[in-house]
Design a binder for these strands. Structure first.
Lengths: 206, 206
DNA sequence: TTTTATATAGAAACACTGTTTCTGATACTG
DNA sequence: CAGTATCAGAAACAGTGTTTCTATATAAAA
């Protein structure tokens, strides 16, 4: 075995270790919340020094970034598991419902990704790309709706962003404690969804 | 001077000191951002021990809470300085614009109040009340619009919340770095505003 | 094989945070 | 004036992200 293959195995080992650490961090995130994800706690769970984490991920942001990407995967899967509906309007509704469910079932991931839990972490190119990928299901439906003439607006990304922002706004105000009861929040959420679909697809249906 | 008046002067002095400390904290907030508002930095600016801050405000949350209320005042004033428009639609548009301006001109306040900058701080009764007061201008216009038959929905608070959440969603996604350029963000914001007004007041105007 | 070089992991330290404790001075009470 | 109680200041505690130092273990060279 020459030098190339050696460094290759070492690189692989590092990559495996990296993945295990991310999984440990993800466990802490889900079980204890974003603010409990600390380098020391992850190191303790891995039974290793904090230094090894700093060697693999440059700093905490490097670890948080991978958790962000992990969250994007979970969100993407949530969207993908939505069964295609008969009408596009219903499909869009179902996707909005899936987004809501994601924020409920993976609240700690949601906080980390979109909640502003880490003021130090700002998504860069790769993270934004992952977010776009996660929302692709959404974009796809909107694009098709535009092509089918159900939505007048021409830029699908713009429509997706407006919808996303509305849904996020309700969820985030709730998570921030500005809308107290979950029941009220869900009511507002459904209201927003209806309002959005009405605004974008209003001229055609019913 | 009897005991009553003495303790009264002492109480007043404490109240004055409290206000000065809040102002010092507010200065740091505006000049350096939310994460720079630390007990030690405030104490340094006041040239006093940290203990005195802990005596007046129980903990950091107590101080943050007052900054939150301060921010509500600023927001309320921003709304109040909006001159009444001819049509209610335009008035609503102007209020939305004022909310945008507030998030731009007082970004650090916005982060503290609605950005989730302090995961430890959750608004309680008084803070929520202050928020409602700040948004009262909004509620007022919506109420009038409902009474005038311009908006079908009967519950003004619900309408205000849906609008607020939509606007907040766009702003917060931008502050979180998920929508990159400010230009794109403003475009989405205006789009949301138009869409909201269209959805709520669509059946009447032009 | 022996020596040299390098990489790296672990412990401890640094600079910061919110918060508490201890102590000494100051100011009210009897 | 003597005693007491309050309260501000410094220091300490427990935590954070991050860096430095050192010893070891492993790879390369002789």
């Amino acid at each position: 075995m020459n030098i190339k293959t050696y460094s290759e195995t070492k690189r692989q080992h590092a990559e495996n270790l990296k993945q295990t650490i991310v999984e440990a961090a993800a466990t802490i995130l889900q079980e204890q919340g974003p603010e409990e994800v600390t380098i020391r706690k992850v190191a303790e769970k891995m039974e290793c020094s904090t230094k090894i984490i700093y060697n693999l991920f440059n700093n905490k942001d490097g670890l948080i970034k991978l958790l962000y990407l992990e969250g994007c995967k979970v969100l993407a899967e949530a969207f993908q598991s939505v069964s295609k509906q008969e009408t596009m309007e219903n499909y869009l509704r179902a996707l909005c419902e899936a987004y809501w469910d994601f924020s409920c079932n993976y609240t700690n991931y949601y906080q980390l990704m979109f909640g502003g839990a880490f003021h130090e972490f700002k998504p860069e190119e790769e993270s934004i790309q992952a977010t776009t990928t996660a929302l692709q299901q959404f974009t796809q439906v909107v694009t098709e709706a535009i092509e089918a003439g159900l939505i007048e607006e021409k830029d699908p990304l713009q429509v997706v962003h407006v919808i996303w922002a509305s849904l996020h706004g309700v969820i985030h105000l709730h998570l921030g404690g500005h809308i107290e009861s979950i029941k009220t929040t869900k009511f507002l959420y459904d209201n927003s969804v209806t309002r959005l679909i009405q605004a974008y697809m209003g001229s055609s249906s019913s």
